[in-house]
Each structure stands twice: as structure tokens, then as C-alpha cells.
């Protein structure tokens, strides 16, 4: 878990307005290689909007999103399409699970391999040797990821038939298949029981150790405090605090945002 000094993701002055509503206001954020960073804040603080802006689902109204995968050039992601961003090395999961329900678990992960493979119509029809090899690579790689997240027993099930916790892990597996240098997790522990959360903690550490930086939105404070190297706290679209878990949990602004202001303060 060596921390490098180059920021994989650097967000500068990111703003997003929907009509008159300023969902994100001058937000700065950095994620370095080998780091687990958490983004927390009360409901409606703009965390998911932040993810959507960074991954290209929304085009931010102002600011810069810069991605520098290890050993590669920096790219400005503003205005790029989500699929291009995924190919550049950033993948995400969704808060409200968005799996391909009528596809098998394995096929869901195989979709993640799409941007790292290239066979097209003629390859599909004639299946020359290199397409067969590629197809085999997709299957093997996907299966290896499923083994890692503990879904190897259900590879041929439709993803809609999985339990909630399994679906969350499948989302992570699918994102990992795109070989991201940065993985964005949107409330990965939502709806999980304590034991599943424990396993998730281990899984995220393992993902980090295998060389993917992680940025997560999470409401489970125990998980966040245990797991994160650094935390960003948001409220009303602004960054109100940042630092290590200890620093953040002692910050008066954070306490105010979460618990409200007391009369004698």
C-alpha cells in the first residue's frame, strides 16, 4: 500500500448547476495512487452528482476533472462520453444497482471487458483464431474476477436472481473488469448486513492492494472510518472538511452538518 505522490484523479473547482440549483459548488478533490478515499455528507449533499459529473454522465458547468492513470498522460475528462472515460481507466458502481438483469452473472462481468477488447462484426461471424482467443480471455478474466469477489458459484444465474449483497459485489466485479486505475463506489455497503459489510471491507482493501485506487461514497461510518486513508466531507454541494478519519471526526463543521448546531455552541 505504497502511496505515490501523483494524483490519479484531480478535481479542481468543479461546479454543476441544474437550472438555478447549484448541486456542486467549487469542489476540489484529489485521489492518489494506492489510496482509499471516502466522500461523505448528509443526504442531498451532492455526492452522487459528483460521481455523475466525474464519470461523464453529466457534463459539469465549470471546473476541471483530470485523470492520470499510472504511467500515462493526464487527460481532461470534462465533456467526454462515459464510455471513453471508462476506457481511460475509471469505473464506477451505482447507488441504485444497475445490473444487466436478464444477462447471466458472468456475462455482466464480460461486458466490463468490452472496452479492453476489439472484435467486431466480422470477428463475431467468422470467429478467426484471434477472436476465439480474445473471447476465451474475456471468459477467463471475468471468471477470475468473480472468484475474487466470491460469486464463482453463481456464474450462470441471471443477475436479477442474486441477493442484494451479491448484486452489490457483482457491480464491483463488473467495474473491475474494465481494469480501472480508479474505482468509484457509490454506497457499496447500502443494504448489507454486518457480516457482508465486513467482507466488503476486506474486498475493498484487496482491490486497493491490487493497484486500484478507490473513491467511495458511504453512509456506514464504521466502514468509512476503518477503511479510508482520507475523507472529504460535503454539504450543500460544497466541501466542508477534509483530512484523515481522526481529523474529520473532530472537525466542528462536520459535527454541525451531521448533528445540527447546539444552542450553546
Amino acid at each position: 500500500m505504497q502511496q505515490s505522490n501523483t494524483a490519479i484523479l484531480e478535481v479542481k473547482g468543479l461546479s454543476m448547476a441544474f437550472g438555478g440549483i447549484q448541486a456542486l459548488n467549487q469542489l476540489d478533490l484529489k485521489v492518489h495512487g494506492g489510496e482509499i478515499v471516502a466522500l461523505i455528507g448528509p443526504n442531498g449533499a451532492g455526492k452522487t452528482t459528483f460521481f455523475n459529473c466525474v464519470t461523464g454522465i453529466y457534463t459539469p458547468t465549470a471546473g476541471d476533472v483530470l485523470l492520470t492513470p499510472p504511467g500515462q498522460k493526464t487527460t481532461r475528462l470534462n465533456g467526454l462520453k462515459p464510455n471513453v472515460i471508462a476506457k481511460r481507466g475509471m469505473a464506477r458502481t451505482f447507488q441504485n444497482i444497475r445490473l444487466f438483469q436478464n444477462m447471466t452473472v458472468l456475462e455482466n462481468v464480460m461486458i466490463g471487458r468490452h472496452c479492453r477488447t476489439s472484435s467486431f462484426i466480422l470477428g463475431a461471424i467468422f470467429r478467426p483464431p484471434h477472436t476465439r482467443r480474445e473471447e476465451q480471455e474475456i471468459v477467463d478474466h471475468s471468471y477470475a474476477i468473480l472468484e475474487k469477489v466470491g460469486l464463482a458459484d453463481v456464474v450462470n444465474d441471471f443477475s436479477k436472481n442474486l441477493s442484494y449483497g451479491q448484486q452489490r459485489r457483482l457491480e464491483i466485479a463488473r467495474a473491475l473488469a474494465t481494469e480501472p486505475s480508479l474505482l468509484l463506489l457509490d454506497e457499496p455497503a447500502a443494504g448489507m448486513n454486518p457480516q457482508e459489510t465486513q467482507e466488503l471491507d476486506k474486498l475493498i482493501r484487496r482491490i486497493r492492494d491490487e493497484g486500484h485506487a478507490v473513491l467511495l461514497i458511504e453512509h456506514d461510518m464504521k466502514l468509512v472510518m476503518n477503511l479510508s486513508d482520507r475523507i472529504y466531507v460535503m454539504d450543500y454541494g460544497r466541501r466542508i472538511a477534509t483530512g484523515t478519519p481522526q481529523e474529520v471526526s473532530a472537525d466542528p463543521a462536520v459535527i454541525k452538518a451531521y448533528l445540527g448546531e447546539s444552542d450553546d455552541a
Binding site: 444497475r98 445490473l99 444477462m103
Partner: peptide, 11 residues
Amino acid sequence: EDDIACQAMGI
């Protein structure tokens, strides 16, 4: 199945 997820996965 899901066009937003499909784009986010690099398609």
C-alpha cells in the same frame, strides 16, 4: 438492459 450502466462500463 440498462443504457446508462452500459455506457459507464465502456460500451
